[in-house]
Design a protein around this nucleic acid. Structure first.
Length: 297
DNA sequence: CATGGGTCCTGAGTGC
DNA sequence: TGCACTCAGGACCCAT
């Protein structure tokens, strides 16, 4: 499921592949994907003739810039982009195709049909959701107590608050679980009980997890592939996500799975105690732990 | 306002 | 072998 590292990988791929290409025609086969404008034929007509000038990202939103228009694309669960040559065999569940003027095509594929596209002038008005996004995890705004400030008035479980894109942008189920593990905090701890010191550790954990995930090309737990159709590599470094019943790579205790905020939630009961303890945050795996992780897979 | 649950969707997996 | 059922979850909608 594309979260910040996966969307960033796709962004980099698309930037390399489509900047400078000119759209001659757009085919919308599944109208529900296109939210703005409401009429998919208008969407297609507006894009005809535009040249891609850049590819950006905000949270989990992919931003495809042209001279005057910005295509805001959210991959949700399984959205995929692929640049192909005309005539190449098409994958199933291809819902939108952007035809370029050089016999190449950008194909949008989405098995679950959850993805969305909004076409806006410049950046205005941003689609709802994008406007209310919290800061990027690497925004310096979150330092010096900034993250603590954003969560200390919330009494919901910390996991719920981190999944809320208005707290900070880009985390999803996988990286919230991984970050909470790295910070040694139980996912159900009420956000308003997180100390300033813990919040600082959490911010560091989030940044380190995301940095490593981006470097590995994201996580392919289910179906994720990047803009070249390649799988990510971070799934072999996952510490808790999808590892229920397996031994914690730090302490050996079986990883547990519970339900928080309606989401499958994975954690180590030993490394992430429910009650506060004077225990330093667990450092991310290094050296031996990495080797063990790789051997395991 | 904050919170939590339902909803959308399809394919993989499970149990009988 | 076949079939019913459950699960996966991001953002949105809505009730409390």
């Amino acid at each position: 499921m594309p979260e910040l590292p996966e969307v960033e990988s796709v962004r980099r791929n698309l930037e390399t592949q489509i900047v400078g290409r000119t759209v001659v025609r757009v085919e919308v086969r599944l109208p529900r994907i296109v939210r703005t404008p409401p009429n998919p034929e208008v969407f297609a007509a507006m894009l005809s003739g535009v040249t891609v000038t850049g590819v950006g990202r905000r949270g989990k939103y992919l931003l495809i810039y042209t001279d005057a228009l910005t295509l805001v694309s959210h991959l949700r669960m399984e959205g995929q982009y692929r640049l192909t040559k005309a005539g190449e065999e098409e994958s199933s569940h291809t819902h939108v195709v952007f035809y370029f003027n050089d016999k190449t095509e950008l194909r949008y594929r989405d098995v679950r049909q959850f993805g969305t596209m909004d076409l806006v002038y410049g950046g205005m008005p941003w689609p709802r959701g994008l406007l209310e996004l919290g800061p990027e995890p690497f925004d310096s705004l979150l330092e010096k107590g900034g993250l603590w400030h954003r969560i200390h008035s919330r009494r919901a479980p910390l996991k719920s608050v981190l999944l809320d894109q208005t707290t900070l942008a880009g985390l999803g189920n996988i990286y919230v679980d991984e970050s909470l593990f790295a910070a040694g905090i139980h996912p159900e701890r009420p956000a308003n009980q997180v100390t300033k010191v813990q919040a600082q550790a959490l911010l560091s954990a989030i940044r380190e997890v995301l940095t490593r995930a981006i470097a590995a090309g994201g996580s392919s737990v289910r179906t994720y592939v990047d803009g070249y159709g390649r799988h990510g590599g971070f799934q072999i470094q996952l510490q808790v996500y999808a590892r229920e019943g397996q031994s914690c790579r730090v302490c050996g205790v079986p990883i547990e799975k519970i339900r928080v905020a309606g989401r499958g939630t994975h954690f180590c009961p030993q490394c992430q105690p429910r009650r506060r303890q004077t225990r330093p945050a667990i450092a991310l795996q290094t050296g031996v732990a990495v080797k063990r992780a790789i051997d395991f897979w």
